[in-house]
Simulated scan of single mutants.
Amino acid sequence: MITRHYIEGYENLLELIQNLKVNGPIVVLYSGSKLSNGKSWCSDCVEAAPFIERGLEFAPESAHFIHVEVGDRTFWKDHKCPFRTSPKTKLNVLPTLSLWGTQKRLEGAQCLDLGLFEMLFNEDEI
């Protein structure tokens, strides 16, 4: 069973990854932060959430899943947002699901396609 982590913010993401001791892949989901109603301000993230949950079934049991909330809408839309500018993340779209340290990722509407999850988690390529 994959190990799950939930955090908010760029610095917290880097700190968590630096401190993780893992033998498997690190899967990172980037989404908009939750509002007081418990749902993300990002409607695409809300729509993709059930597909992402089902898609994680294709992940190896040794995987660590990090769900990181990028901040509020204003912070995300700022072109200086570290999630957008950092070479470690290079985000353009929410939601984005990526395999940390690789170029493999699903962006936006791709997170609605379970077939793409199967390809993303193809163990021969992880």
Rank of each mutant, 00 (worst) to 15 (best):
E11P: 02
V93I: 15
E123H: 04
K90A: 07
W76A: 06
S33Y: 03
I7L: 14
G115S: 08
V46S: 14
G32P: 00
F51P: 04
E57A: 15
S36I: 13
L116E: 05
I52R: 00
W41K: 02
S40H: 02
T96R: 10
P87W: 14
S31A: 11
D113I: 08
G32Y: 00
P82L: 14
I26S: 03
F121C: 01
I7V: 10
I126L: 15
L116W: 02
G9L: 10
D124Y: 08
G38S: 14
T102Q: 05
G32H: 05
I17V: 15
L106W: 04
T89F: 10
T74G: 00
G115M: 02
I7Q: 07
L97T: 03
V68K: 09
S31R: 09
V93T: 13
F58G: 02
R4N: 11
T85E: 15
W100E: 09
C45D: 01
L16V: 08
F65L: 15
A48L: 02
G115H: 09
L35E: 08
P25E: 10
K21I: 02
W100K: 08
D78V: 01
E69H: 09
P50V: 04
F58E: 12
G9T: 10
N92E: 12
H67K: 13
E125P: 02
R84W: 06
E118C: 05
N23Q: 14
N37F: 14
K88Q: 09
M1P: 13
K104Y: 04
K39R: 15
E125F: 05
I2R: 08
S62V: 04
W76K: 06
W100S: 03
G24I: 02
Q110I: 00
G24W: 01
S86M: 13
F117H: 09
E11L: 15
Y6F: 08
Q18F: 09
N23D: 15
K21H: 10
V93A: 06
N19M: 11
E53W: 07
Q103L: 13
V27T: 05
N23S: 14
L99N: 07
C111F: 03
I7R: 01
S43T: 15
Q103I: 09
S40R: 03
A49V: 02
L13E: 07
G108R: 03
K80V: 07
Y6M: 12
S31N: 10
E125M: 06
G71Q: 09
L13K: 04
C45Y: 01
G9D: 12
C45Q: 04
L29V: 14
L56K: 06
T96L: 02
K104P: 00
Y30H: 13
C81I: 11
T96E: 00
M1F: 09
H79E: 15
E57L: 15
S33W: 11
N122L: 05
N122C: 08
P87Q: 12
K39V: 11
L120T: 00
